[in-house]
Design a protein around this nucleic acid. Structure first.
Lengths: 117, 117
DNA sequence: TGAACACGCAACAAAACGGTTGCCCTTCTT
DNA sequence: AAGAAGGGCAACCGTTTTGTTGCGTGTTCA
């Protein structure tokens, strides 16, 4: 079934948006969007969270593909992974484009006085 | 504090993304992006959910400002509200732009052989 | 008018979420 | 070698989310 593949894409997108749906994680993202990879301790320093809480948030972002990490010595450095962001962005572009199209069709429809389909 | 206003914007954005972070709601959005306002019963018909579950999902989308409804007779019609979508989209554009900038700066930095800061 | 339709509200249960605490291990640093 | 720094793992807890069920209300239509 092509339905299955479709459903997988949907699930993945949902997980990306879900990962973005949290203040703390958006803040982390803002810090990482500066480009520099940062350790858990460093990311924790700027917030009121415990290190373990931050670790969990980073886990959510990682599983959603928004971020990825590499171990360097005793540190675990996290960096932004823009592919997921770009995917989410293009999805929203698509939705709003479809909506615009629908609006334009409706407007034309009304102006032309048509009533067929 | 300007911090408070900032935090409010963050919270709102997070709630928008959180509302998008669900398969069922993404499916609803896809249907509504066709442009036509649809009733709860009609939206429910295409899914395996109960009407009440769908009602709750629509509540989430409504509170996030992604959708709005109007009562017509005995029906409650829901329509897409693109402002929230556009806001979310522009945020993602901003993040990926910042990230691109960071990458470019890094690349320039490496190529020029600089090591300061 | 009465049945069918569309919906709201409230109570409830199961699962997911966000966060904490305690303990342990590895890696630096002195 | 010993302490400090960075972090993983698992158990636990309160809250939120997601979904269900039961029941009541307004609307449409034959």
């Amino acid at each position: 079934m092509s339905n299955t593949r479709h459903s997988q894409a949907l699930k993945r997108r949902a997980s990306i948006f879900a990962a973005l749906g949290d203040q703390t994680r958006l803040t982390v993202l803002a810090r990482l969007s500066a480009g520099e990879a940062q350790s858990i301790a460093r990311l924790t320093a700027g917030s009121r969270l415990s290190r373990q809480a931050m670790t969990k948030h980073l886990g959510v972002l990682t599983r959603a593909g928004i971020v990825h990490s590499m171990r360097i010595g005793r540190e675990n450095l996290f960096r932004l992974e823009p592919r997921a962001i770009i995917d989410a962005r293009s999805y929203l572009e698509q939705v709003s484009a479809e909506w615009d199209d629908a609006l334009n069709r409706l407007k034309l429809h009304v102006e032309s006085g048509g009533s067929r389909e």
